[in-house]
Amino acid sequence: MEELLSTFVRSIFVDNMIFAYYLGMCSFVAVSKNVKTALGLGIAVTFVLFCTLPINYMLENYVLKEGALSWLGPDFADVNLSFLSFIIFIAVIASFVQLVEMVVEKFSPSLYASLGIFLPLIAVNCAILGGSLFMQQKAFPNVGVATVYGLGSGLGWLLAIVGMAAIREKLAYSDIPKPLKGLGITFIVTGLMGMAFMCFSGLKI
């Protein structure tokens, strides 16, 4: 239980997808213009991370890892399929995103319209594949921790993009040097937010 809580808090604040690893920056910069759209995308990303991480964790541990196929019989004990992991992970993610896209289109057409091209592009959002790859690297002890890690990283990403969108809404009225407008100032603000988040490092529960 303690481990779950600690993983959860760490993945939101310390190993924040955006401020510590810069994953998912492309859609972070492009969609953070107003809070409502940002919130919608954040929820979609959290949901996809939350669902794909346990699936990929199972695949990693029962199919891909060295010796993972030993449950099929002793002949398979030294099969190592880990070179296939990129393709398998991305296939799981892409099909899941397709599903989310259909659900959003059905239940919230206005959100679907405002997210536009960025909804199918969640499939290529680095944060989501990044979550699976970090899961592979960190070798979590069980599927519960992996799921909590997915949920936490998603919420961390959501927090970052909503905060950024709120700042950018205010920023629209400020007087910024011309060459720095738009993209430039967004980067600087993200950097400053990153510095603020650095004070969480070393946080333990």
Binding site: F19, G184, G194
Partner: peptide, 23 residues
């Protein structure tokens, strides 16, 4: 990590001051 963002922001600043049509 944060300084990478600020370094890129400076590059964008320099680049856009030289190419005004990108502002």
């Amino acid at each position: 990590p944060p300084m990478a963002l600020i370094t890129i922001a400076v590059i964008i600043w320099v680049h856009r001051s030289r190419n005004k049509e990108l502002q």
